[in-house]
Nucleic acid binder design. Sequence first.
RNA 1: GCAGUGGAGUGGCUUGUCGCUCGCGCCAAUAGAGCGCGAGAGGAAAGUCCGGGCAACACAGAGCAUCGCAUUUCUUAACGGGAAGCUGGGGGUGACCUCAGGGUUAAGGUGACAGAAAAUAACCGCCUGCCCAUUGCGGCAGGUAAGGGUGAAAAGGCGGGGUAAGAGCCCACCGGGCGCCACGGCGACAUGGCGUGCCGCACCACCUGCGAGUUGCAAGGUCAAGUAUAUCGGCAUUUAAGGGUUGCUCGUCCAUUGUCGAGGGGUAGACUGCUAUACUGACGUGGCAACACGUCAGACAGAUAAAUGACAAGCGGCGCCACCCCAUGGGUGACGACCACAUAACCCGGCUUAUAGCUCCACUGCUUUU
Length: 134
Amino acid sequence: MGEFRLYKSEKLCSKLEIEKLYAHGTSVIAYPLRAVWLAVPAVPSHQPVAARFLISIPKKRIRHAVDRVLLRRRTREAYRLNRKLLAPAAAQGITVLIGFNWLAKHEKDYSSIEHSMQELLTKISTAITNEQVP
RNA sequence: GCAGUGGAGUGGCUUGUCGCUCGCGCCAAUAGAGCGCGAGAGGAAAGUCCGGGCAACACAGAGCAUCGCAUUUCUUAACGGGAAGCUGGGGGUGACCUCAGGGUUAAGGUGACAGAAAAUAACCGCCUGCCCAUUGCGGCAGGUAAGGGUGAAAAGGCGGGGUAAGAGCCCACCGGGCGCCACGGCGACAUGGCGUGCCGCACCACCUGCGAGUUGCAAGGUCAAGUAUAUCGGCAUUUAAGGGUUGCUCGUCCAUUGUCGAGGGGUAGACUGCUAUACUGACGUGGCAACACGUCAGACAGAUAAAUGACAAGCGGCGCCACCCCAUGGGUGACGACCACAUAACCCGGCUUAUAGCUCCACUGCUUUU
């Protein structure tokens, strides 16, 4: 598996899993993004993944579809390039579900989104490690 | 040159790093992973306002109601779209723009405020007769739409004759309507002639013609672990309530029971529908044009928590500043939160709205030079 490759199996699509994530997940904020995450037992599969994610840009905050698409692509790009930050925490048998929600009312450039993403992933990684150790 | 009118087009490019979706090939029993090659958003993809294809369901038939459309000819699969015209109104010096358009002279209704009166018009005025009476400033009866003022709209316009005063009451000219004829045009209509004194407007309702079954790809189909034994179809039979059929009426059908046959239904998911066509490009022919026909060439997104990108550099464009020149203009350099609108979701044809900058064509007005 390539270091920066982004597979379809890493996307969170199942309605049931999404409902579970938002019902029981923990929230972390680093403006302009908020991450909701939940560690679940990994489903045995021929292609194990450490984390699965989704990106949500609310229509209420960003009115035009063009801008939502652009921000979704930038956010996904930031996740793809910084995903390795989760690696130390991702123990065997654990899959982290993450939902990224957009909080800002206006669009942001890539560098600020990347900065926010790095902060979020570091926090999640630390939290998971602390849970595992004791 | 400046200002403008109408129409058409374009809608940044290149390289590097890291990626996404689909198809094909290789390796492989299959899937996944890997490698290679190829393809991958718009003129509006938008709004979802019309029309069609496609799909499922419904549908004996007749009448009424409801809704939509309404100048002519053409165009189209179809349209409430488009093209070219016609008639009338409005705007602009002009190129041109814009609004309206079946019938209603078959009967009917309404017309705020103002005004005497909103359509079988007498308030003032004008004229005639009679009465009271002192000449008058009076009263009564009648005639009159020329004049006044009101209004969005006032009984075709104007001149003459005529008259007590007046009036298409009569006549000439002009405007409109109706009928007939000639000529031009496929036609709406236009031009001319003759006849007829026939002569308010707007809206509603009404009438005429044409069209309209419902729901939308979240349509619909296939697979499917567990749960569960309901459901559907054919045939025969009974006929009361009731139910369905288009909103209503008529009409019509169903029901109940028996028997035979089928194997189904809902939920999460996967697959399918799913992209090849009223297709795209070039050329030719016909046509003022919309468009049609023919020949040749081509294959051109198919995602599904939703791919087609992110970042960097350069080029290009635009704006502004400075400098140089053979100065209308061109060149060089620096600067810039600058470079629009807007992201397919079953597919087409339109409409509407948004759109930085640039390009082209035809035309108009003003001005300058030769």
